[in-house]
C-alpha cells in the first residue's frame, strides 16, 4: 500500500512538473504579444527552457513507467541519469542564450 502511495505521489509530482513547464510557455507568448519581440534571444531562451524541460520530463516518465514494455530493459536509474544530463546541457545553453 505504502509502495503504491509513494508511486502515486511520484506520478502526481511528475504530472504537475510537466504541467508547470508547459504553462509558462503560453504565458510568455502572450507577454511577447503585448511587449513586443525586442529582447528576442531572451524570449526564445525562456520559451525553450520551458518546452525543453517539459519534453525531458515526459521522456523520463515514459521510460520509468513499469507498464511501458518498450523500455523494460532500461533501468530507471539510467533513465534518471539521462534526464539529469540532458537538463544540465539544456540549461547551460539557456543561460548562454538568455543574454
Amino acid at each position: 500500500m505504502a509502495k503504491s502511495t509513494s508511486s502515486d505521489v511520484l506520478t502526481l509530482i511528475r504530472s504537475l512538473r510537466s504541467a508547470y513547464a508547459a504553462t509558462p510557455t503560453n504565458l510568455k507568448v502572450v507577454y511577447m504579444g503585448i511587449v513586443g519581440s525586442f529582447p528576442f534571444n531572451s524570449f526564445l531562451s525562456g520559451v525553450l527552457s520551458c518546452v525543453g524541460t517539459a519534453v525531458l520530463a515526459v521522456c523520463l516518465r515514459i521510460q520509468v513507467n513499469k507498464e511501458n514494455k518498450e523500455f523494460k530493459d532500461l533501468p530507471p536509474e539510467r533513465a534518471f541519469a539521462d534526464f539529469v544530463l540532458c537538463n544540465l546541457v539544456l540549461h547551460l545553453v539557456i543561460m548562454n542564450f538568455l543574454g
Binding site: L10, I13, R17, Y20, A21, P24, L27, K28, Y31, V35, G36, F38, P39, S42, F43, S45, G46, V47, S49, C50, T53, A57, F80, V84, N87, H91, I94, M95, L98, G99
Partner: peptide, 25 residues
Amino acid sequence: IPAAFPYYGASFSTMAGFFIFTIVY
C-alpha cells in the same frame, strides 16, 4: 533589460523546478 525579466524568471524557475524535482524523485 527590464522587458526581459519575465523570460529570466521563467528560465530560472524551471531550473529551480528541476532541482526540486530531482530531490523529490
